[in-house]
């Protein structure tokens, strides 16, 4: 071993943990090399001096501060643990209580509703007065709504240029209103629709709307007046059935005319014959 290789392992020879276990070659070289001996000796003295340096002691403040810090951290950790535990418990109770609270709320609402809406056997006079006033107000509102519906239907009937669907809807609305609250204006509009509307469907629906009012002379007269102008066999047959059902004797001349009209549809003539037989 040369000096360079030997000096590379001097730190390990100077370390008590490694000195005794190896580096036999370096020891042999060191024993016979004065230069390396001087180098090793100075390094050894430096290492010894370094090892002999006294370890300074920290002040009591360090220990005091550390334990204060530790205590603070423990409190913080305990607080976090408590929060987590509380949260966990709350979470468990939430799972248990939430459905119960929901059910209680529904039951409470049900009973409260029953209590408020239940028919009161022993109403107080004030409550009865309030109830009567409410009823009056309700009837008034219902009338207004009816009137509004009639107006809408009337408006629709007035606008022949509007699409068939709108007119049909208007006729249906008028028929419904006429059924509930017969009004001359609505009846007139239904008769007008039967006589003048270009749509077969609208005319048929108008006739249907007039059926409940077949006992009224104005209605029968309107249907009878429309019959000669009607060209559609379906509507014609429906009108004939209407007049037969209404037992309108004044329809007889018009029906006879149809029976004799060879240009009329066979079903129309048959229906007219049957109606005449009924009359």
């Amino acid at each position: 071993m040369n000096c360079q290789r030997a000096r590379e392992v001097f730190p390990e020879l100077l370390d008590a943990r490694t000195a005794a276990t190896a580096h036999l070659d370096a020891r042999t070289h060191l024993a016979g090399c004065p230069d390396c001996q001087r180098d090793f000796a100075t390094l050894s003295r430096t290492a010894d001096a370094l090892g002999a340096l006294p370890d300074p002691a920290p002040s009591p403040r360090l220990r005091r501060n550390f334990y204060a810090l530790l205590e603070e951290e423990k409190n913080s950790a305990a607080s976090v643990r408590a929060t987590v535990e509380r949260s966990r418990r709350t979470s468990v109770w939430r799972w248990i209580l939430a459905p119960l609270a929901g059910a209680a709320l529904v039951a409470g609402g049900f009973f409260a509703g029953q209590r408020v809406a239940a028919p009161a056997a022993g109403y107080s006079p004030a409550l009865a007065q309030t109830d009567a006033a409410s009823r009056r107000e309700l009837e008034d509102l219902r009338r207004k709504v009816d009137t509004m519906g009639q107006l809408v239907g009337y408006s629709l009937l007035q606008q022949q240029q509007r699409p068939t669907n709108d007119r049909l809807r208007g006729v249906l609305t008028s028929a419904l209103r006429a059924d509930e609250n017969p009004d001359d204006r609505v009846i007139n509009e239904l008769i007008s629709a039967l006589a003048l509307d270009p749509s077969v469907n609208v005319r048929l629906r108008a006739l249907d709307g007039l059926f409940p009012h077949a006992d009224r002379e104005v209605v029968r007269a309107g249907v009878l007046a429309s019959l000669p102008r009607e060209e559609n066999p379906i509507v014609q047959v429906s009108m004939i059935d209407f007049l037969a059902t209404a037992r309108d004797a004044e329809a007889r001349p018009a029906l006879e005319k149809l029976v004799l009209n060879e240009g009329a549809d066979a079903s129309v003539r048959t229906a007219a014959r049957r109606a005449l037989a009924q009359l």
Binding site: L53, A57, P58, L69, L70
Partner: peptide
């Protein structure tokens, strides 16, 4: 802390050459 703070402080005091700084760093 009891086992190591003295040795650690000594190391830091030698490293920094400043006892006050060594205490702070140990902390």
């Amino acid at each position: 802390f009891e086992r190591h703070h003295g040795r650690l402080f000594g190391y830091l005091a030698k490293l920094t050459g400043d006892r006050s700084a060594a205490e702070d760093i140990t902390q």
